[in-house]
Design a protein around this nucleic acid. Structure first.
Lengths: 129, 129, 129, 129
DNA sequence: GTGGTCTAGACCACG
DNA sequence: GTGGTCTAGACCACA
């Protein structure tokens, strides 16, 4: 299910956070769906349970999941409002990336085309799922 | 000139690398322009000279500047070719960010508009300089 | 294990880089084999740990090893593709050296024989390992 | 006549040494031919005369030229004997380079061919000049 | 215990 | 005065 790169510079728990974020954002994991139990996932990935727990704690802190003591962790439904701060951060990142692509030789046309393609896919995905 | 966050989890030298990368990419620092001397910048930012040097060396490794012992460090003029690998990485980052913006409630129209605006500015900047 | 020349004009960390490069290139250190821990090697060579780390980071930048924080540093398996630039540099060095050997009195026959011998050994080594 | 790279990491005087070595080795500068006067060359290259002098001193120390006080510096004729130490060093360098080329994916056949080609040229050059 | 970051402070080569 | 090297020694995050 997960492909962890133990050789990577980025810590294992961070890789887990990113994987789950991706699954949640792309609606592969649905709202209120339960995440694998810590010990189970630790077993499957042959990773220390502490590492899984750290990842779940981080996901909770970033607002992607909620934990119910004694029951487990679940995908937190997205709330449309109150994301202004996060969106501003993302917009800055996006600016940075577009600047760098231009610097490295991408043409504005290429960049626009690429984003439009993705937006089309993203919309479809959202509607279809 | 620089705003360092000493409490950030991202190391000081990495923050410096990002700042300079931004200045170079956005053509605020021109090709062959000299960067502040290691000791001078260290003094201004009240940071250890070794930390500045680490940032400069990293920038050199990443191809943004060149350092000439005894002379100084300078912005390396951009070479158009062979950025395929870097561009692929950036495109993946861009995908990730666009996905997340959609998840947080941005509309495709907003995203496209924002990027077009930036591309227009970027072009102007390039031409004007 | 290592012979460092502290009086050499070539810096200690650079000597270390060259030693490890040699071990890796000649397959004395195998892919994914762990390098000595920074502090351990520093102790053995009576050199500052920072110096070792600088060498390791340099080896990582040059693509010979990878370091995983908290785990260790390991030999990076060779990837065949995209060494065109490095090979061109080496070919120039080779030209320079052959010229100088001719100048110093080596005969073409001697040079060819010597290289053929090495190539035979190199092949054997590769196959045997 | 000379192309100095002031942006290079390698010091100017070292670049000069290498250039002259190359000219002498390839018989472009003949034995007992006079090198440009320090001040003249400094003027042409717009370089500090001290730098030229340092290069000449280094060339003399390495046995490529001799200096006659009050007259100038001249190419030292090659003496066939007594180069054993230098040759051993060169052979080691050659081994190192061949190893690295193999590591980077060159085939033994390619390496042999390339050296034979150069040896043919070198011989011709020597005989023709 | 591992690599990584940072400071304080010394010394060197180059131009 | 410039970048570069090195030491000594402290502290942090990760597994």
């Amino acid at each position: 299910m997960f492909e962890l790169d133990l050789r990577s510079r980025s810590p294992v728990y961070e890789q887990l956070v990113e994987k789950f974020k991706e699954l949640i954002i792309n609606n592969v994991m649905k709202p209120d769906e339960q995440l694998p139990a810590v010990r189970v996932l630790a077993g499957e990935l042959t990773v220390n349970p502490n590492t899984i727990q750290k990842a779940y704690r981080e996901l909770e802190h970033r607002g992607y999941i909620y934990s119910v003591p004694g029951k487990g962790s679940f995908v937190r439904p997205a709330v449309p409002g109150n994301n202004a701060a996060k969106l501003r951060t993302l917009e800055e990142e996006l600016s940075r990336i577009v600047s760098e692509m231009l610097y490295l030789g991408s043409t504005p046309q290429e960049i626009i085309t690429r984003i439009k393609t993705q937006l089309a896919k993203g919309e479809g995905g959202k509607l279809d799922d």
